[in-house]
Amino acid sequence: MRTFKKILGYVILTAAALTFIYPFLWMISASFKPESEIGSLSLIPKNFTLAGYGAVFTQIPILKALFNSVFVSVISTACVLIFSSMVGYALARLRFIGRDTIFNLVLLTMMIPGQLTLIPMYVLIVKLGWADTYKALIVPAMMSNMGIIIFRQFFMSLPQELVDAARIDGCSDYEILFKIFWPLSKPSLVTVGITTFIGSWNEVLWPLIVIRKWDMMTMPQMVTLFSVGGLAGAQVAAEMAAATMLALPVVIAYLFFQNYFIESLALSGIKG
């Protein structure tokens, strides 16, 4: 009876897990199928074709979009790590006028839904002449409230003796932060880094609004427009090929760092 229950549990779990993986396998297989085969459940294409990928590469500058996405995500993540850890350090370790006000501001602004400031932000970007530039994607994303909170929390837990010893050695606050605290903060850095990177990589709405030129588009934006805007000409294989290319980098990174991903995102959820 017990083993039966156990087996049943595994069967249910496996079935559930399959429903989570099957659509991705279907997507990948559909991207290699000719149009006539797409309406079948089989995961193995009978007539393997790269036509879907061919259509993507000839119709949209997908490699430029890949570069844009990598560039924007990497720079934004680097900025978030540097700036948020600086603010986190100041809030956790330094005494200065307005410190509590700033911490309250950080907590408060986290509650503001992004949709509220969407239009003024768009107008601002337009007025600054940043539409269709990387600046529009990077600069507003250079700071992360969640990052600040995570860093502040972690830095508060580090022993004061570390700081005292460093000060005796004549270290500045910048040196304490980047040379002593950073190497000790790998989990926090990874957490903030991964969440920022994924968030930036997957963002669709903001690029959709501030980027109009094909040359400047990010991957998710371009892939969305490719399949919504009718450029794919209702070719499902091409849509699936584009979607597969968009998913692939994240899936590969995910396979390598699965545990980091899950733990850091869960942590950010609990913190945020």
Partner: peptide, 19 residues
């Protein structure tokens, strides 16, 4: 397996599910 859809762009998920 359960976590995989969460890390993937909403664009991929919607294009896929539309089919």
């Amino acid at each position: 397996a359960f976590f995989l859809p969460f890390v993937i762009s909403g664009a991929v998920v919607t294009i896929l599910w539309q089919q």
